[in-house]
Design a protein around this nucleic acid. Structure first.
Length: 260
DNA sequence: TATTCCCTGTGC
DNA sequence: GCACAGGGAATA
């Protein structure tokens, strides 16, 4: 589920659930998350109020009133469930914040790849991330500059969070389809007009994701994707069969008929 | 720049 | 059974 639009929606859910509330306890429910938490860190969260929830790339930041920040990354399958302390935990609960008023924010994740880390004001989190993919002030010239001189394929460049933050395997494919660009093109070979098209494609794909959020999920027949997960089906633009290829170990969906 | 690993569920 | 899954850090 989680690329930029989904993480943004998740951050909104977390914000509504816990901002302004005080933490009764932090529950670390899986060893993959426990590995990153000391007992002292768990204790330190107790009694703290959550002052804000923000997003940077695909990370959610829970700001505590003592300046500590919890950084939550959903990786592939993470999600929030909001319920009440005392109810049975939802399936695949990996981490939870119990508020003093009984509200509970639970991180669920069947694969347990999600990460949650805590950072003190003395050692705030750092992010090696490019500009936000949905930043309305991002220009084609700046995007072009970030891509210039690289030899990687565009698809892989779009997945590189240091170049641009927030796209994942689905939205990268969707953006390239909208921009009519071959995912295998080396980014260094893009002309200015193609970079401009790419940026428009990114914006259109993300806007569509935001618009449909919550109404579609991969795996449902009504998934709205233009190319993603449509191998063998006719392109919605030119009727050519959608093809797949592997790039950097990830599957890329694209249309050989109209993406060049 | 390209694999390998982290985990577990699902669909073929 | 086995391949694959929307991510990313750690290796070679």
């Amino acid at each position: 589920m989680p690329e930029l639009p989904e993480v943004e929606a998740a951050a909104r859910i977390a914000r509504r659930a816990v901002v302004g509330r005080a933490i009764a306890a932090v529950d670390v429910l899986h060893p993959s998350i426990a590995r990153r938490w000391t007992l002292a860190e768990r204790r330190r969260c107790r009694g703290r109020r959550i002052s804000a929830v923000t997003r940077r790339g695909k990370s959610q930041l829970l700001h505590l009133d003592d300046g500590c920040i919890l950084v939550v990354h959903f990786r592939l399958d993470g999600d929030w469930v909001v319920d009440a302390a005392g109810e049975p935990l939802p399936s695949f609960a990996r981490f939870a914040i119990r508020c003093t008023d009984g509200r509970r924010l639970v991180l669920t994740d069947p694969r347990a790849l999600s990460t949650v880390t805590v950072h003190t004001p003395a050692a705030p989190p750092t992010f090696a991330l490019g500009p936000e993919a949905d930043d309305p002030t991002l220009t084609a010239a700046e995007l072009g500059a970030r891509l210039a001189g690289r030899r990687t394929a565009i698809k892989q460049a779009l997945l590189d969070q240091r170049i641009l933050a927030g796209l994942g395997n689905i939205y990268a494919a969707e953006a390239l389809w909208r921009a009519r660009l071959d995912p295998r093109r080396r980014v260094g070979t893009l002309e200015a007009s193609e970079v401009a098209r790419l940026l428009r494609g990114i914006r259109a794909a993300l806007a569509d994701g935001v618009a449909h959020l919550g109404r579609y999920r991969t795996g449902t027949r009504t998934a709205p994707w233009r190319v993603y997960d449509r191998a063998g089906s006719p392109c919605r633009r030119c009727r050519t069969q959608i093809a797949i290829l592997t790039q950097g170990g990830r599957t890329t969906y694209w249309c050989p008929g109209c993406q060049h």
